[in-house]
C-alpha cells in the first residue's frame, strides 16, 4: 500500500514538475537571472497553497501531525544551501528536477544525475569531518517551527501563537508574494514589445 502511494504521489509530483517547466534548465536559469519569474511565481504559489491546505487540515483534524517532518536547523543547512545554489545556478538543475529532466530525455541531465551520485558518495565519506567540526550541531532549537503545532514535539520560535494559524498566515503571505511578483525584474530585449525601437522614426 505504501508503495502504491509512493507511485501515485511521486508520479503526480514528477508530472507537475515537468508541467510547470521546472525540468527545463532554460526556465530555471531565467528565474535565477530574474528575467523570467513565471516559475518563481508558480513555486511560491505552490508552497503557499500547500501550507494553507496542510495547516487547515491539521486544524480540521484530517491531517495527521505525525506525517509532518521538520528538519534540523544547523550551520550545514546554510553552507550546503550555498553549495547547492552555486551548482543549481550553473547547471539549472536541482536533485528532483534533474531526475525529472533526465526522464524527459535530456542527456545533460543524465550527467547531472551521475555527478549527483558521486557528490552524495563524497558526502558519505566526509560526513564525520563536518560532524566533528560542529557544523551539524542544532541551532535555535534544531527541528524548530515558527509556532507550536499540536500533536508534535517540535520547539517553536514564537511559543505564544498557534503554529497552525501561523502556518496559514505564512501560506497566505507566500500566495500574496506570488501574485505581487512581476513577470520579470530585469527586462531583456526579447520581452520588450516588438517594433518599439522604430517609434522615433515612425
Amino acid at each position: 500500500m505504501t508503495l502504491v502511494l509512493a507511485l501515485l504521489v511521486g508520479g503526480a509530483f514528477g508530472f507537475m514538475l515537468d508541467r510547470v517547466g521546472a525540468s527545463d534548465p532554460g526556465e530555471i536559469i531565467g528565474m535565477l537571472r530574474l528575467t523570467h519569474l513565471r516559475l518563481m511565481k508558480t513555486i511560491l504559489l505552490a508552497i503557499g497553497v500547500g501550507a494553507v491546505l496542510t495547516f487547515a487540515g491539521l486544524l480540521a483534524g484530517f491531517v495527521d501531525p505525525v506525517h509532518l517532518s521538520v528538519k534540523t536547523a544547523h550551520l550545514g543547512v546554510v553552507l550546503g544551501g550555498l553549495l547547492l545554489g552555486a551548482g543549481f545556478g550553473m547547471a539549472g538543475y536541482c536533485p528532483g528536477t534533474g531526475l525529472a529532466a533526465a526522464a524527459t530525455g535530456r542527456i545533460d541531465a543524465c550527467f547531472f544525475v551521475v555527478g549527483g551520485l558521486v557528490g552524495a558518495a563524497g558526502y558519505m565519506l566526509t560526513h564525520t569531518l563536518w560532524a566533528g567540526a560542529g557544523v551539524l550541531a542544532p541551532i535555535a532549537g534544531g527541528k524548530v517551527t515558527l509556532g507550536p503545532i499540536a500533536g508534535t514535539s517540535y520547539p517553536a520560535l514564537i511559543e505564544a501563537v498557534s503554529g497552525e494559524w501561523l502556518g496559514i498566515a505564512v501560506g497566505v503571505v507566500f500566495i500574496a508574494i506570488a501574485v505581487a511578483i512581476p513577470d520579470t525584474l530585469r527586462p531583456t530585449r526579447a520581452v520588450r514589445p516588438p517594433g518599439r525601437r522604430f517609434e522615433a522614426t515612425g
Binding site: 508552497i47 551548482g87 547547471a91 536533485p95 547531472f112 544525475v113 552524495a120 563524497g122
Partner: peptide, 30 residues
Amino acid sequence: GGAIVLYGARLAGGCTSGHMMSGTMQTALS
C-alpha cells in the same frame, strides 16, 4: 554541477524539495 548540488544537499540535510518546498511549507526554520 550535480556533484556540488548533491554534496551541498546532503550537508544541508535536504534539497530544493525537502527543505525549500516541504520545509517552508511546514514553517520550518531550516
